[in-house]
Nucleic acid binder design. Structure first.
Length: 220
DNA sequence: AACCAGGAGACAT
DNA sequence: ATGTCTCATGGT
């Protein structure tokens, strides 16, 4: 008998219900990279305002950002929150792209190494952690790297597929082992998980006095 | 009026 | 290695 794939079944259900999400919301690979940094622990609506500010100031490119004072850049991205730290992180990203000679065509980064090499190099950039690196690889460069975020942990923890103490890499390996390696699939799956999280998956159980809460991995 | 949002780095233990 | 703090705006 055919064993159903518990790591892929949610994808089928979500896609059937919601259809394709057409991610990442961003017009160019560089805009995707900037958005990936700005959306760290931040609602996407706030990121949109910050990106709109950058566009209005004609500042959505590497050289303009690198030429700007930190305080001026921070002021443009203020709506995205953490504006002082994110200003430095955006500059670090642009510095990295400039060092690679792709400051006017950031998508060309994809031709500079394997997915694993690029991931390693991205992680060495200040302000780029695992989720941001994978978001850039998948959504800006089109490389099949599965993105794990807070919604992923929450939803799949509650499905009983995670026990709660796995690190980022462990969760990513589980997905990459059970889900066929395909950029389009990884793209759509993560987008659908985020939509699920936003609409249906509350951060905490509603029932705070449930007698079984002490058994829940998310109980602290 | 808390609580949360598509995290990551610095720092102490 | 693993935990705790900090960073900050805007919506519910």
């Amino acid at each position: 008998m055919k064993r159903t794939n518990r790591w892929l079944l949610p994808y089928d259900l979500l896609l059937a219900r919601h259809g394709p999400q057409h991610w990442w919301p961003g017009e160019t690979p560089f805009e995707v990279m900037v958005g990936a940094v700005l959306t760290q622990n931040t609602a996407w609506g706030n990121v949109e305002k910050a990106i709109a500010n950058l566009k209005r100031a004609d500042a959505l490119d590497c050289r303009t950002i690198l030429a700007m004072a930190d305080a001026d850049l921070a002021e443009l991205i203020r709506p995205a929150g953490y504006f002082n730290v994110k200003a430095k992180r955006l500059k670090a990203l642009c510095r990295f792209l400039a060092e690679r000679g792709v400051e006017s065509a950031p998508e060309a980064l994809a031709g500079q190494g394997t997915s694993a090499e690029l991931r390693r190099d991205l992680l060495a950039v200040h302000g780029i952690g695992e989720e941001t690196a994978d978001s850039i690889l998948l959504y800006a460069l089109g490389l099949a790297s599965f993105v794990v975020d807070a919604y992923t942990r929450r939803a799949f923890g509650r499905l009983g597929l995670l026990c709660g103490d796995e690190g980022y890499g462990a969760i990513q390996r589980l997905f990459e082992r059970h889900v066929p390696c395909d950029t389009r699939l990884y793209n759509e799956y993560h987008a659908l998980i985020v939509r699920l999280g936003k609409e249906h998956c509350r951060p905490r159980p509603r029932c705070t006095d449930c007698p079984l809460n002490s058994l829940c991995p998310s109980a602290t």
